[in-house]
Nucleic acid binder design. Structure first.
Lengths: 166, 166
DNA sequence: CGGTTCGTTCAGTATTGACTGAACGTTTGG
DNA sequence: CCAAACGTTCAGTCAATACTGAACGAACCG
């Protein structure tokens, strides 16, 4: 059980994991974080740092920092086992929930900026109106995302039989 | 009319514009792009490249590339005036629309990745189910954003009298 | 035709950040 | 105690990119 990953991944998996890395990089996040995410998404059991490092072919230092960063973002969950000193990482069950929440927070921070811009003494009437419209749009967007979040949580709490798929 | 901006901004405006720059930088975009956005958001008339450069205290080269990049993203609109060889930039009226659309596209690209991961031969049942759930969530999110977009366009097309302000 | 005024491009610099190997402190087990 | 196995940290390297000044080409104007 939980056989350690001593060798690299098979080509097909490696290619897919790499695509995760590239996607993350395109979004401005470290590529290794993407690879970790892709690999853990396909892993059933939580993986240790050494597992991740050898499977992905990167240094343990990078895995340590990136995994911890992903954990801080709520994307991964760190677990430990009795009698084992290692840390294990797995995809957090509600990972996207935390991610979406941080996106909503960012929108609100931008909204605060817009609010201050709107109140600037030098702002003309037209500028104020334009900013107000932006603000309304962003508020609507944050609201829409928050609503989706609530619906999803309600769905997650519903019994599996009432959903299309578990 | 359209008096050129030969000197820097007043302190309060400059501070706010700088906050836009910092916000953009935090989101992984060039800081100057944020400053341009903030400044144009407060400007009534479109601004020339030289106006932008002197007002923001940066080189014209930077303003040229960043303004063009923002234009490509649909964030700014470039205009010209008869008898004037200069280009003028202003906030695009439907700027957030294009921005949101590109966000939706990114989600769909990620969805394609998840679909491929789901179909990976080595994937176990549990992994497949986990990925399916992720995919459903992202699809719901893209749908929610697209819906918001439609609603907003409908609102934009409505006569001004039915809205709070034009 | 020059000379001026645009915008863009290009080479170069500086800054940021990803990534690594090695060192470190801690815990476990002999 | 010692040695091995953890995770973290730190100095250093490397690549990407933001930003600049100067050069460039095109359009306009005398």
């Amino acid at each position: 059980m939980t056989r350690p990953v001593t060798r690299s991944l098979d080509p097909a998996t490696a290619r897919l994991v790499e695509r995760f890395g590239l996607f993350f990089a395109q979004e401005g996040l470290p590529r290794i974080a993407g690879r970790i995410t892709g690999y853990l998404l396909l892993s059933d059991e939580p993986r240790s740092l050494d597992d991740l490092a050898t499977a992905l072919g990167v240094s343990k230092a990078s895995v340590s920092t990136d995994a911890r960063r992903l954990e801080a973002r709520g994307f991964l969950r760190r677990s430990s086992r009795p009698g084992d000193r290692r840390d294990f990482y797995a995809i957090a069950p509600d990972g996207f929930r935390t991610t979406l929440q941080s996106r909503i927070d960012a929108i609100h921070r931008f909204g605060a900026l817009l609010r201050d811009a709107e109140r600037l003494p030098g702002a003309t009437r037209r500028a104020r109106d334009r900013i107000t419209e932006w603000n309304a749009f962003h508020r609507a967007m944050a609201g829409s995302m928050a609503e989706l979040l609530e619906q999803w949580e309600a769905r997650a709490e519903a019994p599996a039989s009432t959903r299309r798929r578990a």
